[in-house]
């Protein structure tokens, strides 16, 4: 049977990882490539780089990081942040990314999803949705959750699927940073609507928080940043907690 993926996410700014990282035996905790290798050897099922670079120069640096990571880590790599067009997607895929996450550009112009799927194939296109509860529904926010769009998250997820997205990376802006667990009602609303895989993001505070996203929320994968970076939860602990709760993960021996 298909196993639930555990995906550590690294925020990268101008070639350096932001957010604290607390790994033993790591000389340079700010080096995304070294961190990717560390996660690789701990048995991450996939890795996600989120490029939060503001400058144009930093973009080239990101491509180099993707290239060097892909040389050493033989696992799926998703890269997101600032992807505006199909040509951005192609550039990232050529550098070694397997999947590219599109967020603001897809919300501003959903045709970008179709263009990306035509260029890279659906399997390479992840549509990242940042949603916040507004009244009785979930609304998409962009620009790091600051800018409301008036777009309904469930409807947009359906459109993303129709336009050829291969996966949805769903972040709850209400839960992100709270460490109080994933947003189960939001996950349920999306996973019962679309038939493509959904990655849960935002809110993981402990190893015990991971399984409910799958068992109750219907997610196919869980993504977390800070609990792994700060060493609060190891991937081995995350795997054990998922298995114990009844959400099987890939067997991995370190």
């Amino acid at each position: 049977m298909l196993k639930t993926r555990i995906i550590p996410c690294l925020d990268v700014k101008d070639g350096r990882t932001v957010k604290g990282v607390n790994f033993v035996d790591l000389r340079d905790a700010g080096d995304p490539v070294a961190l990717a290798k560390a996660y690789d050897s701990q048995g991450a099922d996939e890795l996600c780089f989120l490029d939060i670079t503001a400058s144009h120069e930093g973009r080239g640096t990101m491509l180099d990081i993707v290239r060097r990571t892909a040389e050493q880590c033989f696992m799926p790599l998703t890269v997101g942040g600032g992807v505006r067009s199909a040509s951005d997607l192609v550039q990232l895929l050529r550098s070694g990314a397997d999947k590219v996450a599109i967020n603001s550009a897809a919300v501003a112009n959903p045709a970008v999803i179709s263009e990306c799927a035509a260029k890279g194939g659906s399997q390479a296109v992840v549509v990242a949705i940042d949603a916040r509860k507004t009244g009785d529904h979930w609304e998409i926010f962009t620009h790091g959750g600051r800018k409301p769009t008036g777009i309904d998250a469930v409807e947009f997820a359906m459109e993303a699927e129709q336009r050829g997205a291969g996966e949805i990376l769903l972040t709850s802006m209400d839960k992100d940073g709270t460490k109080s667990g994933f947003d189960i009602p939001l996950l349920k609303a999306i996973t019962k609507t679309v038939s493509i895989p959904v990655v849960a993001s935002g809110g993981a505070g402990s190893a015990a928080d991971l399984a409910p996203a799958v068992l109750e929320g219907g997610a196919n994968a869980v993504l977390a940043a800070s609990i792994f970076h700060f060493g609060e939860v190891t991937l081995a602990e995350a795997r054990a907690a998922m298995t114990d709760a009844g959400a099987p993960v890939r067997p991995f021996e370190t």
Binding site: M1, K3, E167, S195, I196, P197, V198, N220, A221, R250
Partner: peptide, 26 residues
């Protein structure tokens, strides 16, 4: 009702005793 694409890590059930599939572990 499983999602399509089939995306992620899944187990292999070997149907041939093939040299290319040798030593992949349990």
């Amino acid at each position: 009702g499983l999602a399509v694409p089939h995306m992620g890590w899944n187990g292999l059930s070997l149907k041939q005793d093939h040299p290319v599939l040798a030593g992949l572990g349990d």
